[in-house]
Structures are given as structure tokens and as C-alpha cells.
């Protein structure tokens, strides 16, 4: 029974791969996220046009909900694609 002192992990644990741990919206004091501003929303969407999760962007829950709503409205108005092959 290997004693657990020298338990070695198969791969090193990713402690802090993404350094962005602050919420950009709270830092800059965003009051409203506009659904008509497509090129700003493009920064919050990955290449396939999916909404980036909070763990990558580091945004707080309050602003992530507003971002989600704004992106869905922009998609309805064909400002953002529902799915795209390469967006950048």
C-alpha cells in the first residue's frame, strides 16, 4: 500500500492557468451592456460563437447574466451568429 506521503500526481494540477480573476465590468464600472454593440460582444464569445464561461472571463454572476441576455438579443437580431466556424 503506497503510503500517501510520496503520492505523485500523474499531471501537475493547473493551479492558476488563467490569471484574469477580476470582473472587467465591475472594475470599469459598466452600468449597461448594450446588445446592439456587436464588436464589443464578439470579445465575450469564442470562435464557434458560444458565450465564454465565467471561469475563463472571470466576470461576476451579475454581469455574466446581463452579457448572456445581451448576446441572445444580438443573436435574435442577426448581429451575432448562433453558430460560426471561425469568428475571429
Amino acid at each position: 500500500m503506497a503510503d500517501n506521503k510520496n503520492v505523485r500526481y500523474l499531471n501537475p494540477i493547473a493551479i492558476d492557468t488563467k490569471s484574469e480573476r477580476y470582473c472587467r465590468f465591475r472594475e470599469k464600472g459598466f452600468k449597461y451592456i448594450d446588445y446592439k454593440d456587436a464588436d464589443f460582444l464578439l470579445m465575450l464569445v469564442n470562435e464557434q460563437g458560444k458565450i465564454l464561461p465565467r471561469r475563463l472571463t472571470g466576470t461576476s454572476l451579475k454581469y455574466q447574466r446581463r452579457v448572456g441576455k445581451a448576446i441572445k438579443k444580438a443573436r435574435h437580431l442577426a448581429l451575432l451568429p448562433y453558430l460560426a466556424d471561425q469568428l475571429r
Binding site: 452600468k31 449597461y32 448594450d34 446588445y35 438579443k73 435574435h76 437580431l77 442577426a78
Partner: peptide
């Protein structure tokens, strides 16, 4: 072919005016 009506809350109104 498509339309979207949104109600403007106070932040939205402020934003629209500043824009």
C-alpha cells in the same frame, strides 16, 4: 423580417443618452 422591442430600464436610458 425581424423585430425586437425592449423596455428601457434606467441604466439603459442613461446609456442611450450618453451615447
Amino acid at each position: 423580417i425581424r423585430f425586437l422591442t425592449t423596455k428601457m430600464d434606467k441604466n439603459h436610458i442613461e446609456f442611450a443618452e450618453s451615447r
